[in-house]
Design a protein around this nucleic acid. Structure first.
Lengths: 224, 224
DNA sequence: GTTTTCATGGTACCACCGTATCATCAACGT
DNA sequence: ACGTTGATGATACGGTGGTACCATGAAAAC
């Protein structure tokens, strides 16, 4: 069978297997043999593509963060062709909530990594966890935009509100993971806060339909 | 030395050792030998007082949650003799932030437990993690009190605000743990939200300046 | 066609970890 | 006094997990 193999694709597949099994049994309980079995390959191959477990874990983390960026982008795209600042902020926040079963695993593993990084300096040095300030900057910028479009109270403290929103989303996310709250109630709480910050000039009730057909082009920023 | 020994005190001491070492190296990296060394006793004794590691972990979790309750109580006590609802809420929220080095370990380990409980049903069945709704009820009740004392907007959604506050505190706490935010900026964000919710008894103008509007003088300037 | 290189399988090694076993020593009851 | 019981030490055992080593089939290079 030794036809030339795409190493990157192979590594990505193994990384997905890692995330899957970690989502089920917890990141702490994942061994290389488990990953191999989940990916349907032999232990030797996991070693072959990632020499060490540390390497595998790093790669898994990288995939997760990249996946998060893609999820945000997809949600923003789904918010319409020219989404207003609120729609973008909402997309960003909602993405950080574990709603369906797949994103539940996603967030569980990502949170596990973050917690590991607190005491594992090798993980903390990985750049993929090193810039969550990017999200803060992005949300702050979006709130600024909204203020200039007179969608916010003129004296709103955008940076503080951005931090508060992100922290709230993170906290709600772990609440959902822990089974203390449903995804629906969490989104309701989040939307309540958004409704407070954004003085909705038109529809105020939680209508998830088309909102804010803003003429101003809000260019999507990088966002992680 | 075989004079009768207070088992409970011994177990508590070992539990404290567990939390200490877990705070340094992470809960996942803690073994019974580490706990024994940290407590200055032999491995055999850790086995003697806790038969199994699972038992030790359960006990450690119990100690942590009990410690949390005591911390809240101490902070409320420090808030004055007859603290208003806001002072109590603030004490509760501030307690859930890792400020000094000791509480940092405290929250790191507690968060690790919570995350473990997601995939470990034996841990999830432990009653000490089973009642975080209690905090939600407490804060909601306090907000109700405040509303009746006309410290809140009469149409405030107390339960939603309570959930939001608790989620925000949790999220800010993990941010501090991850080194993404200082404890000072986190407390500032939290106070900003409290200032928003608790408005002065006269007007609804948001005062970002000093707080303590209560007639009883609910100024708690404790905090480390 | 031979050689080299890539991909893969199988398995052994080593260290660590939780647990169990055996042994000892000091107090306390009667 | 002496046996019983509680507290402690030392060490062994079984399992598991990451890593390493050897082998081999199958293309690609020459």
């Amino acid at each position: 069978m030794p036809k030339r193999v795409d190493h990157d694709e192979r590594r990505a597949e193994i990384g997905r297997a890692l995330v899957r099994v970690a989502g089920r049994r917890g990141l702490h309980a994942v061994g290389m043999r488990d990953v191999a079995a989940e990916a349907g390959i032999s232990l030797r191959l996991v070693q072959y593509y990632f020499q060490t477990k540390e390497n595998l874990l790093f790669h898994g983390l990288q995939q997760l963060t990249e996946g998060f960026g893609e999820r945000v982008a997809a949600r923003v795209r789904a918010a319409g062709e020219n989404p207003g600042p609120r729609a973008v902020v909402e997309a960003l926040l909602m993405t950080s909530l574990p709603t369906d079963e797949e994103s539940r695993a996603f967030h569980l593993v990502l949170t596990s990594y973050a917690l590991l990084a607190v005491t594992d300096e090798a993980l903390a040095a990985q750049p993929y966890l090193r810039r969550p300030d990017a999200a803060e900057d992005a949300v702050t910028g979006l709130l600024e935009q909204a203020r200039e479009a007179e969608l916010l109270a003129p004296d709103a403290d955008t940076r503080t509100e951005a931090v508060a929103l992100l922290a709230m989303a993170a906290g709600l996310g772990t609440s959902i993971l822990a089974g203390q709250r449903t995804a629906e109630s969490a989104t309701a709480v989040l939307r309540h806060q958004l409704n407070r910050i954004f003085r909705t000039s038109s529809a105020s009730s939680p209508r998830p339909a088309a909102n804010s057909p803003s003429p101003k082009g809000t260019s999507l920023s990088n966002i992680d």
